[in-house]
């Protein structure tokens, strides 16, 4: 709906909460990017900055929540206006979570110094992070432009992230079984991978909100899921024994 409200202040309110959301999205994209740079370069200062900057993301979420509360109380939004405020509220909470994942990645970087030899693992994490970062950006773009097709592409991309995560999970298990000294760093690297994989899930949630805003209904949750790490452990054990 392009037409302005008769009450101009209502338009201003809606524009403001959406602008805050996009600012929050920008901060989360940057946090994820910085966390990956810090991981790649072993830059502990940058990691500390990611951790500290997460407070700004949390503060924005709280501000959005308050503004949305005010819009609902004062403007009684309906139809597409109601979907706008509800989607902003949901997306702010989702982005806040993504910020936490970036912070968690940053927190674990200092213990990975001794785990440099597994370069294939690092490149898998990087690929995952690259995919997830573009999913996040595309999800926010699809929201701004009301582009349902783009939002659906983001949801489809999550499959790739899940597959990368699965292969990484297997590889980490192999390392840990072969050399128990790698268990501690491998566990941390696994948590990093898991955090990134979760950002991918949340990017699909953001895309779902973009679709909801345009169509009025959330897409069904029957997309293919590929995180099978909970079932393939026994298979891996057999592989190792036979091999």
């Amino acid at each position: 709906m392009n037409t302005d409200h008769i009450l101009k202040a209502f338009d201003a309110d809606l524009e403001k909460i959406q602008a805050l959301l996009l600012r929050m999205g920008g901060l989360v994209e940057k946090a994820l990017q910085d966390a990956m740079t810090a991981l790649d370069k072993g830059d502990l200062d940058l990691a500390a900055k990611v951790i500290a900057d997460d407070k700004a993301i949390d503060a924005l979420e709280e501000r959005i929540r308050q503004d949305v509360e005010r819009v609902i109380a004062l403007r009684a939004p309906t139809a597409s206006d109601l979907r706008t405020v509800l989607s902003v509220l949901t997306m702010a909470s989702t982005l806040e979570r993504c910020g936490d994942y970036a912070r968690n990645v940053a927190k674990r970087i200092h213990v990975l110094e001794e785990f440099r030899y597994a370069s294939s693992l690092n490149s898998t994490v990087k690929r995952m992070a690259g995919t997830v970062a573009s999913m996040l950006a595309d999800a926010l773009d699809s929201y701004v432009s009301g582009d349902v097709a783009k939002a659906q592409e983001v949801i489809a991309q999550d499959l790739e992230v899940d597959q990368l995560y699965n292969s990484m999970f297997r590889e980490l298990l192999t390392h840990m079984m072969e050399d128990p000294r790698t268990i501690a760093p491998a566990m941390h690297l696994h948590f990093i991978a898991k955090n990134i994989e979760r950002v991918g899930d949340h990017a699909t949630n953001l895309s779902e909100q973009a679709i909801y805003l345009v169509t009025g209904t959330l897409p069904s949750d029957d997309r293919p899921k590929q995180d099978v790490t909970s079932v393939n452990l026994s298979g891996l054990r057999d592989d190792l024994r036979d091999g």
Binding site: T3, H5, I6, T78
Partner: peptide
């Protein structure tokens, strides 16, 4: 009607865009 009206004119009216 108040969440997903099917006609654009209904949407415009209930959201305060036409009077």
């Amino acid at each position: 009607i108040f969440t997903r009206p099917s006609d654009d004119r209904t949407e415009a009216y209930i959201t305060g865009r036409i009077g």
